[in-house]
Amino acid sequence: MDGGTQPLLRLEASGGVATLTLARPAARNALSMGMIAALRDTLARITADDTIRCVILAADGPVFCAGHDLRELTAHRADADAGAAFFAETMAACSALMQAIVALPQPVIAAVQGMATAAGCQLVATCDLAVASAAARFCTPGVDIGLFCSTPAVALSRAVPHKAALEMLLTGDPIGAEAARRLGLVNRVVAPDALVAEAAALAQKIAARSAVAVRLGKRAFHTQSGLPLAEAYAIAAATMTENMLAEDAAIGIGAFLNKTTPVWRNR
């Protein structure tokens, strides 16, 4: 909570899928320190919950996330150090949040209903998958206010081609949902009234897979993606070996060979 009585984040879980909803629409779901802490604490609980197989990150109101809370940041300019310590603390906390999403064993799907700006766009780029409403838009407009989106650039440059990322970062211009899909920032674009159902269907499809295979696979994917080719294959081969030794792999391969439906034990 940010000094109020309403929670900043809602958590609902059903059928192996946890839905986290940013619930600060009056502040455009900005990533205040309170919101960042709420997300990190909730993700830490989900990490240890074997009943949750997939996570959806959604938001209330017309804006998915407006990025950092500029009012909160500006208030600290009155500090003795002109805000330097608080600015550094905020950027470190947000960076840790993004890394926690990548490190989370369960895949995370962003369900983007509206504008995702700056660190809000970073949040979408960080999630493993993204489903967007046709009304959604994405931008990194820090350059418009003299504050280049350097931390959002880390996630954005890993999600879309470099020249596309730099154009967004250097101009601050928003792009629509279909353009975001073409660039690879989002996976699917649907009508606004179909967003919740589409994200839920995708999450349920993933949740129905072997949890051990999905967890190993997500870990290996993110570990190898920044490595040289030989190191990437070494990580992937070791993961395949570990996965082959899992009970679910024996179950799944046996079911395939016998033309039956596997019943996962998730180990």
Rank of each mutant, 00 (worst) to 15 (best):
E72P: 02
A58S: 15
V63Q: 04
G176F: 04
V108P: 12
V63P: 05
R137K: 14
C139E: 13
C121D: 05
G217D: 05
L156P: 14
I145E: 03
A250N: 10
A194F: 01
H68A: 10
P105W: 06
G61Y: 01
D60M: 09
S225D: 07
A38R: 04
A199F: 02
A80D: 05
G4P: 02
A48W: 10
V186G: 02
A78D: 12
S133P: 10
G114K: 04
D60N: 07
Q204V: 01
G217I: 00
N258W: 04
D128S: 11
G254Y: 09
D128H: 14
H76F: 00
T260P: 02
A177E: 01
A159T: 08
A132E: 04
Q224G: 11
A78E: 07
A179Q: 15
P174L: 11
P25W: 06
A159D: 12
A165W: 06
V124E: 10
L147I: 13
T19F: 03
A18P: 07
L8Y: 02
A58M: 04
A80E: 13
A80G: 00
G146D: 14
G34K: 13
L104Y: 02
R188C: 07
T90S: 15
T239W: 05
A194L: 06
V143E: 06
K259G: 05
M240E: 15
R77N: 06
L195E: 07
L97N: 01
L166I: 11
A75I: 07
D50F: 09
D173G: 07
A37H: 09
A211L: 08
P7K: 06
V189Y: 14
T126D: 08
C149T: 01
P161R: 09
F256V: 12
R182A: 15
L70E: 13
C121W: 00
A249M: 11
V196T: 15
A207N: 03
T239H: 08
S157T: 14
D81M: 05
D50R: 15
G67V: 10
F86M: 11
R137N: 13
A203F: 01
A13L: 04
A208T: 05
L147S: 15
A38M: 07
A78Y: 00
L156C: 14
G252T: 04
V190T: 14
M244Y: 07
E167C: 07
C65Y: 00
L123Y: 06
H76G: 03
F87Q: 03
A208Y: 06
A220K: 02
S32H: 07
G172K: 14
T140N: 09
T140M: 09
V214C: 03
S150P: 01
T42F: 04
F148P: 15
H68Q: 01
M35Y: 07
C139G: 02
L39Y: 00
L31K: 08
A255V: 02
N266D: 15
A111W: 00
G15L: 12
V189F: 14
R24N: 13
A200L: 13
M1C: 07
A201Q: 15
D173M: 11
A111L: 08
P174R: 10
V186H: 04
P262C: 09
A88P: 01
R28K: 15
P161F: 13
V189G: 12
I251T: 09
V212I: 14
A119S: 11
R28Y: 12
I206Q: 00
I253K: 10
R24G: 06
K218E: 06
E231N: 10
F86T: 11
E247K: 15
